[in-house]
Computed example of a mutant assay.
Amino acid sequence: MALRATIYKAEIHVADNDRAYYGSHAVTVARHPSETDERLMVRLLAYALLVDGDEGLGFTRGLSETDEPDLWRLDLTGAIRQWIEVGLPDDRRILKACGRAQEVIVFAYGRGLEVWWAGVRGKVARAGNLKVYALPAEATRALAALAERGMTMNVNVTDRTAWVSSARGDVGVDVELLAGES
């Protein structure tokens, strides 16, 4: 019998001083059986860092569907405005996404981040619609400890640092821009 996705519900309160955006959002996310709490929380953080008053940002089927990103922003015609990946995608996936979307954003994290970036940097340099952000491994591991099936997250962003708090604790995540314009 195949394992089923676990449903997580989050109330995310965003105070993003860098973008002057303030809002609350109720989201439901399916966690694939092979997905870690760390990856789930990075997806939720990516949502909080990109959400705005514009409709269209949403979670996809993620790991269940190889032709979809982790999040995307669609316009009213269904065209992909933003393709958002979390983790360490390979250069072919990034370049394919750059051809399908107006903008591609990668939130890279994990133990092999520096090695991954050294390997893909030159290959994706020609992509003019790509932004790559690095999240420190210690911070994303600490984010994993905040995961709950029903949670309230407060995300305050100032000077490219996201301060995430919940009933389980607080974590500061420095969001470093590796490629693309800010």
Score class of each variant (00 low, 15 high):
A5G: 13
D18S: 05
H25C: 02
L143D: 01
V132G: 07
A48F: 00
S64D: 15
V115S: 12
G180M: 02
P33I: 01
W116I: 10
W116L: 11
I105A: 04
D54M: 10
I94R: 02
A144P: 06
Y47M: 03
S165G: 09
L74F: 12
S34Q: 10
K9R: 15
Y8I: 12
A46P: 00
R81E: 14
V124Y: 03
E103D: 12
A134H: 00
G119L: 10
A20V: 11
M151W: 00
R61P: 00
V106Y: 04
S64L: 15
G128M: 09
D67P: 04
D70L: 08
V157M: 02
V164G: 00
Y47V: 01
D91H: 11
L45I: 03
L76E: 11
F59T: 09
G78S: 08
R100Q: 14
R100G: 02
A139T: 04
W72F: 09
E65D: 15
V14L: 02
L113S: 08
D16I: 01
G112A: 12
H32R: 02
P33Q: 05
R121M: 08
I94H: 04
M153R: 02
Y22S: 12
Q102Y: 04
E55D: 13
L143P: 03
V106C: 04
S64V: 05
A30T: 00
E65R: 15
N156K: 13
N154S: 08
H25L: 02
Y21R: 06
E11Y: 14
V27S: 02
V120F: 06
T66D: 15
D174I: 09
L113F: 12
P89N: 03
A79G: 08
D91P: 06
A125I: 10
R93P: 04
V175N: 05
H32L: 02
N154W: 10
P136H: 09
A26T: 10
D18R: 03
R81A: 10
V155Y: 00
D75P: 03
L135I: 06
W83A: 02
K96W: 13
L178W: 11
D54R: 14
A10C: 10
D37M: 07
A48W: 00
L3N: 13
R31N: 01
G119R: 13
G122I: 03
R160V: 01
I94T: 11
R168W: 06
R149M: 08
T161H: 04
A142Y: 06
G119F: 06
G119M: 07
T6W: 00
A137G: 05
V27L: 01
A15Q: 13
L178F: 11
I84K: 01
L45C: 10
L71P: 10
L74S: 12
E85A: 05
L63S: 07
D90G: 11
R93A: 09
V42F: 00
V86H: 05
I105Y: 05
E65A: 15
